[in-house]
Nucleic acid binder design. Structure first.
Lengths: 201, 201
DNA sequence: TGTCATCTGACAGTGTCTTTCATTTGATAC
DNA sequence: GTATCAAATGAAAGACACTGTCAGATGACA
């Protein structure tokens, strides 16, 4: 009773289990036959759910790849961190936490998802939109924490710049065939905004 | 004969004229009835071209909005600038040129296009992908100019960070109902990367 | 003016995504 | 346990973005 278990009912558990299964099945099919040649109908049949449910779960075919169970948790932590620390420190903090979480979690699936994102333009577009939205959300949280008005120019440039750099870092990770350690990459992202971009000028 | 006129033939001139017309007609229809409720077929009929041609011109419905005649010219100028100036100076230079070009050109159309991008998620996604691709191209050009290897981490973070900030600036412009002067916004973008982001920390 | 390469329009087809409705299934009170 | 209610599911029809193909038209060039 004193545990902070969110009292998640059977309904929700089944839903998440089904979503995990559909994503897994879809990733397998995409790897085997290519993204374009696998229809949503086929994914649904192979996962024993109706196509209707796949669309109810993910909304679009692209989001079968993009969906991540833990994303909402991350989004919730940002305003929390900003309440007690300045933006750059929060950035460093979040980025560290994210890296160690990623290293702990299902890396194989994550890499397959990132590879698909980088290979399929439609998935790439949906992913880019997600990043853009994340930058907006981050900017809003920073504005509130600093007591600036919503949409403050400096904050806007900062939040979009940071998210842009993170995205660039993930691209670098993929391009290096995931060989550059993620902590190296994200450490540089944080350092760039703390001490400036080290381009000879 | 000594002029650098690209000797543009009748064929190409007609093509561009048709594209301009289709975009204009489409923007009018979108404003009148909403993006989702205007089919490509309808746009084609109202522009007196076949739907096939609309797809040949723009590729997708979203790119009817995104297409800009002058984009290729801009892309071509980047490596040129980087050959003679360091990245931050080139950034400042390009951003200034872009602003004065925008102020000179058809602003009404530009604002209608930006408004559509911000309002319609599918157009927003395609636009975000374009920005992402631009960051890649910019990064490649910077790497070459600085003699670093392709995909150099610092360059990657810089180029994506810069493009992210520019995108954030455009968002701010839109949110302010285009009242914040574009030169103020873009000046801040350049300054942020030259002297650091001025967030109290 | 004639020949060639390229562009255009017409048309059929595929797959994504939406909407609607009857049916099933988990949540809650008794 | 059983009844009641809210929500999720599956089935099916339809809209429309987009692709591929082919015959005909049109500009480029000798």
């Amino acid at each position: 009773m004193s545990e902070d278990t969110p009292v998640v009912g059977l309904r929700e558990r089944k839903r998440y289990a089904a979503m995990r299964l559909v994503q897994e099945v879809a990733l397998d099919l995409f790897d085997a036959h290519g993204y374009a040649d696998v229809t949503v109908e086929r994914i649904a049949a192979a996962s024993d759910v109706s196509p209707s449910s796949v669309y109810r779960y993910f909304g679009t075919k692209e989001h079968i790849v993009l969906w991540d169970e833990n994303d909402p948790i991350w989004f919730a932590r940002i305003p929390q961190g900003l309440r007690s620390h300045p933006p750059l420190e929060t950035l460093r903090f979040m980025v560290d936490a994210l890296v160690s979480e990623v290293l702990r979690s299902d890396q194989a699936r994550l890499r397959r998802r990132i590879s698909l994102i980088m290979r399929e333009p439609s998935v790439e577009a949906a992913s880019a939109l997600q990043a853009y939205r994340a930058a907006e959300a981050f900017g809003t949280a920073v504005s509130e924490a600093l007591g600036r008005e919503h949409g403050d120019l400096e904050v806007q440039l900062f939040s979009h710049g940071v998210v842009g750099a993170v995205v660039g870092g993930l691209h670098h990770w993929y391009e290096s065939a995931f060989s550059t350690p993620l902590e190296t990459i994200m450490g540089r992202v944080a350092a760039s905004f703390e001490r400036g971009f080290g381009l000879a000028d």
